[in-house]
Design a protein around this nucleic acid. Structure first.
Lengths: 258, 258
DNA sequence: GATGGCCTTCCGATGAGTGGAAAGTCCACT
DNA sequence: AGTGGACTTTCCACTCATCGGAAGGCCATC
């Protein structure tokens, strides 16, 4: 790791020390992980704490503070979307009793902004705030298939990390899957991240009808998904309508007249 | 507004320009609002964008980026808590069909981390990420009543902002309310923020049995809350149990033997 | 008492950061 | 088409915010 020269870069490096595996850290850990001198770390961390980006526990450890949560709530792709989508996610959960997820696209990654998990459902590797590459996740494929052509091309041309033997890793395979997603209107990702799970995802459209997010369910790999696809697509359509998507307002009859 | 000298302070000032009223801004707005020179703003904003704290739209406006959302998800008082609390919040919503809210305490403020709102329920002023003073909100009172004595004293001694004629503004009134909350195990905030609404809130305990959050419902002021208190307290107890609170695991019989 | 880990404070040297100025872009108006 | 204003981007001499080594303090362990 090369230590940034700029203060901004150093602040970001310190914030990036925190992760799911390390939700809290003491000053020396931060100093070592960020590659910054102890006193430098001390000063910068104190500024982060004063502002609320970090909080310090009674035991002297630091964790992410609520100030970032407040700011994050303003991000267009996160909590605002989640709030409007929540009723439909809950419906989908009630109908399927499987893990339900909502994600947005950030470059070539899907970022999970909501998850409703079932106690007895298959374990899901994602959690809120985590990311997976678009090529390997149901929601990622559902969003990528309708993204701008240059984004799709970039995805096709970029190296695709392999998680399991089933993960898509070739341009040809990805193109084919994207074409199928566009034709079908939903994506199936079978065993791409974990061999034991399968996800069904559908794109969610915003007020200009562009795809802005995706909703998915994650089920054990041996479940027949045919009966789940309509539910996922219904939820996606409902969320799209809540977001003001023109195409989600048209009734079937009007759609047929196009 | 006095412009901070430090880079960190300047970055925070720029981030603080964003609010619910201003979810996006262009470079000149940021420069004016932060009191920083245009070129300084330009440089700092570019660093924020590179890191993902801000994103830039096609129209050149900046909004909060997903990177903060990812970090925020690691905050102990936010999305992790929300996720465990969600089933109980949903139960409470199904039972009452009123606005349900989950909040944590940050100093003398309640920060709202979840909200399930009803279409036909009374309008609620809070949204996810927003804050209200503890003395004036149901959840705030529920958490303050069980906070460390020095926190309670600080609240009692601090100026209490008045929102309506019903808002608690005197130390004596606050002490009395806090004592009642401790005795009753729940808080009622009647018309303290808005005259037309009333909230019932109950404290949520974490794994060391300290109060770490609170859940509330918000109803029109003319609703009889007596029937709602048990539902709110049940939800709080359920969430406490999900968080591993020892006191929420005891059955009534064992409780009676203490 | 000695040691080690962690944290906090201090301060002279310096290079990261500043912001005014210039240039470029876009758009509405005349 | 020309103009003016708003907005954005780039440049660079100067300076002061930042740095990190050093010192000191605290606490737990041996």
């Amino acid at each position: 790791m090369t230590t940034p020269k700029s203060v901004a870069g150093r602040l970001f490096t310190l914030l990036s020390v925190f992760s799911e595996q390390r939700p809290s850290a003491n000053l020396s850990e931060l100093s070592r992980s960020a590659g910054l001198a102890l006193s430098t770390t001390h000063r910068l961390v104190n500024e982060l704490v004063e502002w609320g980006a970090l909080d310090r526990d009674d035991d002297g450890r630091y964790h992410v503070g609520l100030r970032l949560f407040e700011l994050a709530a303003l991000s267009p792709g996160s909590l605002g979307l989640r709030e409007r989508a929540l009723p439909f996610l809950e419906d989908l959960y009630e109908v399927t009793h499987q893990n339900v997820q909502l994600a947005v696209r950030d470059g070539l990654e899907a970022v999970y902004v909501e998850r409703i998990s079932a106690h007895n459902a298959v374990n899901v590797v994602t959690r809120i705030g985590s990311r997976l590459p678009v090529h390997a996740s149901g929601v990622g494929l559902a969003m990528l298939a309708f993204a701008a052509p240059e984004v799709q091309e970039l995805a096709v041309r970029s190296p695709m990390r392999r998680f399991t033997p089933k993960t898509i890793t070739t341009p040809a395979a990805l193109r084919e899957v994207l074409a199928r997603v566009r034709r079908d209107g939903y994506a199936i990702s079978d065993g791409q991240i974990e061999l034991i799970t399968l996800s069904v995802a559908a794109p969610i459209r915003g007020e200009d009808d562009s795809v802005v997010a995706a909703v998915s369910i994650v089920v054990p790999q041996d479940v027949d998904v045919a009966g789940l696809v309509p539910a996922v697509r219904t939820a996606a359509r409902g969320i799209s309508r809540a977001l003001g998507a023109p195409s989600a307002v048209r009734s079937p009859e009007r759609g047929a007249s196009d």
